[in-house]
Simulated scan of single mutants.
Amino acid sequence: MKLIVFDMAGTTVFDENKVGITLQTALQKYGYDFSVEEINVVMGYEKPVAISLLLKDSGVTAEKDLVNKIHQDFVEMMIEYYTKSNEVKSTPNAHHVMQYLRENGIYVAFDTGFSRPIADTIFKRLDWKQGQDFDFSITSDEVENGRPYPDMIFKAMEHFNITDSKEVGKIGDTMSDLQQGENAKCGLTIGVTTGAYSRNELKGYHHDFIIDDLLELKNILKN
């Protein structure tokens, strides 16, 4: 492996469904009521796409202006949360594993269904710096297609001049993370149970491993 691409919320950043609850709140403000379970189905997707899918599934025309307003409210609430909440922290062993990979010559990258302003707020809050704690990050608003499309992984590969996706691993906590790894033909696609999906839910999608703690990645790579 030359590169491991990590998801953020639920994978490397602690999340007790705060993302789903915040998206639910943003939708409710405009009169659209969805359960967290319904919202979890689209977790990991680029958030405007997730909003559009939810609206369409409920028979609502997902007009661009409406989607943008809901998304903007979501972004503002998430930035406030990641700036001020005492709950914000990394998942167990995330930073240790990031350091381990970099010390062993493996690049560490992040991709996310968040837009750049939210991702940068998280990096600032956790004091994770590019070039010191990780090597690259890409957000869904910086590519043509977010997850489950492979664009963000391909962008990370391009950054490091990696041409063979078999030398890349993808780790995430949602269906769309695993689909993204499959679509990019990653050499390693790993689901982690620290976020939106349970082990049983993740089992239904393409994966090489499902883990409960990022620390397990060390043994996977050794073998």
Rank of each mutant, 00 (worst) to 15 (best):
K64I: 12
N161V: 11
N145P: 01
L214M: 12
T193D: 09
P148V: 05
A196N: 13
S85F: 04
I118D: 00
N17R: 13
V192N: 06
K166I: 03
V97E: 09
Q179V: 01
D173I: 07
G31A: 08
D73V: 13
E76W: 02
Y82F: 15
A26T: 10
L126M: 15
Y107D: 03
L188D: 05
E103S: 13
L221P: 08
K218P: 01
M175T: 12
L23N: 05
F136T: 11
T174I: 02
R125H: 08
T139A: 12
E38W: 07
Q28P: 00
S90G: 15
M98T: 03
R116N: 11
G181M: 04
L23R: 09
Y149R: 00
E46T: 13
L101K: 02
A94Q: 00
L66K: 14
T189Q: 02
R147E: 01
I211N: 09
C186W: 03
N104A: 04
I4A: 05
E167W: 08
D164I: 05
V192F: 11
S52P: 04
H95D: 12
T194P: 02
A109T: 10
D208S: 14
F134H: 09
Y81T: 05
E76R: 14
G59K: 03
M98E: 02
S52F: 00
I79T: 11
G105L: 05
D120W: 07
F6N: 05
V67C: 10
Y197N: 12
G191W: 01
Y45M: 15
K170D: 00
G20M: 11
D213M: 03
I122Q: 05
